[in-house]
Every structure is written in C-alpha cells, then in structure tokens.
Design a protein around this nucleic acid. Structure first.
Lengths: 190, 190
DNA sequence: GGCTACCTGTGATAAACGTCACATAATTAC
DNA sequence: GTAATTATGTGACGTTTATCACAGGTAGCC
C-alpha cells in the first residue's frame, strides 16, 4: 500500500486522515496471467492501481485482437466511460503477467469523496491524468506514421518496448506484425 | 447563458445558488473566423464553452497543418494537459467560423469550486467527458481504416461532416485530401 | 527429451495510400 | 463584377503496408 500512498501524494495533498478514510474503498487483489481485470460487456466499477505486473486493454474486431493500451506499475487502469456512466464495457482488460492491483471500489470511493475533499480532489486528478494520457496517444496516431510512432515510444515510453512482445506492440501501433519487424530491421541498419 | 445552464444541468445537479456563484468565473467572448482561442506556446487558463460557431485544434508538423479535433455548439474546448499542469500548449485552437464562447477562467473557477461542491462536481464531470471523447477518437484511429473512420463519423458525428470541408476533414482523419475524395466517390458508387 | 504453443524473420504479391500535376468549381476579397 | 484565393476532382506513379506462406527460434510443460 505504501507505493499507492506515495503515488497519491505525488498527485495531490493527502492527509493521514484521508488515507485512513480511503482504506474502506480499497482491496488488494492478485491476478494470474490472462485473468480479466475487466471483461467485455461487463460494467466497470473499479479503478485498478497497478502495484506489480502489467496489463493491457484490447478490442476483438472480426475475431482479431487489437491492443489499445498498456498499464504498468504506478498506472491506473480502468474503462473511464464505463466507470463514469455505468455502461457496459466495449473492451476487455487482461493481465499480461501475474499482477497485483489495489482496487478502488466505485461506490465506496464516492462515499469517501463526500467525507473528504482531498479524496474528491484525488478522483478528479486521476481522471485528469487519464484524459491527458488518452490525448497523448490519440495525437500520436493522428500525427505520425508507424515508424514515427515507434520512435516516439522509444523516446517517451521505453518501458513498453522493454516488456511487451513485438506481436503485442504491433497490434498496439496499428500495423501488421511483419511490418513492425521490417521497420525495426530498417532502423537498425540505417 | 441559458444554453450553458441547460448544459450544466444535463451533467450534474446544479442549484441556482451555485449558478450565481459561478458567474464570477464566466465571461462571454466573441471570436472572428481564424481568431485563436489558444495559440501554440501559450498556457491554457480557460475552458471554452461553445455557444455558437465551431473551432478546431491542430498541430503544425513540418509546416503542414494536422487537425486533431473539432468543437461545436455545446462542446467544451480546452487543452486539458496545459489547463491542468500549466504547461505551454503544443497545439493551437482556432475559430473556423465567427464564434461565441463562454470562457471559464481557471483561477476564478478554482475559487468558486472551494465554495460549492456542485461547482467542484461540474469540473470533475467536464474533465470526465473530455477523457471519454479523447478515448473515443483514440480508439477510432487505433482500430479502423480511413474508410471505416469516415463511416464511423457518418453514423456517430454527422455534424462534423455537415460543417467541415473535405480538406479539413481529411487532415483530421489522417489521410491525404485526394484519398478522402476517392473514398467518398467509391462509397457513392457502391 | 519431446511436445506444444507462441514469437520472430523474410519472401512474394496485392491493395491502400501519398505525392505531384493539373483542371475546374466555389468562395472570398476588393 | 472581377480578380484572387481556396476547395475539390482526377490521372499517373511510386511508396508503404497488409496478407499469405513458410522457416526457424524460444519457453513452458509433462
């Protein structure tokens, strides 16, 4: 839990009292590789703070898996629109390694928010960070070619390249596995 | 201002008293076509509620303009990461038509938030909607081809197609102007 | 060890897309 | 109204990428 407290305090002022109060909304949970944090069609009632391991979000389109995000230690994973609106999720989130998460329960978190403006502010900041991250990757696809997207990740998110296989990464970058293999080869030679 | 109040009440409970209090953070502002709501390099201290007209966000990459978003009546336009972190904006927002906006000033809004939990909740909901919109378009690029992206807009955001020129739209969809022209032709014939 | 599942590299070929060039609307400026 | 600017359509051509096919590599499991 200590990592989480550090993480929270990097975002916003947070008293010991708020931390105490927040405990009622938190559960530690272990996932095996390929366990679902969130399944397609399910309503998302949690924020998952990733303590150890990593997971990915993906869609299944015409039988093919399309990765849309990776979440590592000190990230929050969730489906923000399902969490906020109570709609069924159109995608799944699955553990790619054995994973330890601290789960924020929505109802309990809302209760706690009403009792502490610091917890309220924490929620706001989590959403804000999530929005910024979405904007970053949305822009990435809008502006750059596959090769430039790869270079961007190398510069700005090397942890993804280190931990995710080429096949998984290709799906995330929106190119065929073979194409990514060739881009990488081209870049080594020149 | 009446439209704004309706919009706010569609998002969250909002008393007349909160509305009164919020006034101190609001200014109505008129923009001519091609006026900047936000320029590149500037810090974004505002949320712009679009009352009439529309605007777009865009990057300039190697001298070429790349559109990343369009904002119409009843949308909130802002640079969420600049607004939140106080960093300089890496892109611009410009009026595409004569435009009327109600501008939320950041500092005054924060002051008002402290005095009313409803205003606080409003801020949170605006950020949340922004995050959902970003996620939607991020996914769109990740999952679909140019033609499918066009079809998605036709089904889900017809207002964009009705009001934005082909050249502007092509830049937003991430394809060459000529390609979009051909896609459209192909679709009419089949 | 041997089986299985998954991952990576590479060639051949076809489809999609970008770029350049130019013609023709449509819109805006004066 | 006329000129200038901007937007659109279309052909030709080259580049990038997807797809299919197959070979070899790696890791976990019994």
């Amino acid at each position: 839990m200590n990592n989480l407290l550090k993480y929270i305090r990097s975002l916003t002022d947070f008293s010991d009292q708020s931390w105490e109060l927040l405990q009622g909304a938190l559960t530690k949970k272990e996932f095996k590789k390929n366990d679902y944090l969130l399944n397609e069609g399910q309503v998302c009632n949690s924020l998952f703070y990733i303590e150890r391991g990593y997971c990915k979000s993906y869609y299944v389109i015409d039988g093919a898996i399309k990765n849309t995000g990776f979440f590592f230690e000190n990230d929050i994973a969730t489906n923000i629109s399902s969490f906020g609106n109570g709609q069924k999720s159109t995608y799944a989130i699955v553990a790619c390694e054995p994973l330890t998460a601290i789960v924020f329960d929505k109802d309990n978190l809302f209760q706690a928010s009403k009792q502490s403006s610091e917890i309220e502010a924490l929620g706001r900041n989590c959403i804000r960070l999530f929005a910024i991250k979405q904007e970053e990757f949305s822009t990435l696809f809008n502006l750059y070619s596959a090769q430039e997207r790869l270079e961007y990740l190398e510069s700005n998110h090397p942890e993804i390249l280190q931990r995710v296989s080429l096949t998984q990464l290709a799906s995330f970058l929106g190119v065929a596995r073979e194409t990514l293999s060739r881009i990488r080869k081209r870049r080594v030679l020149t």
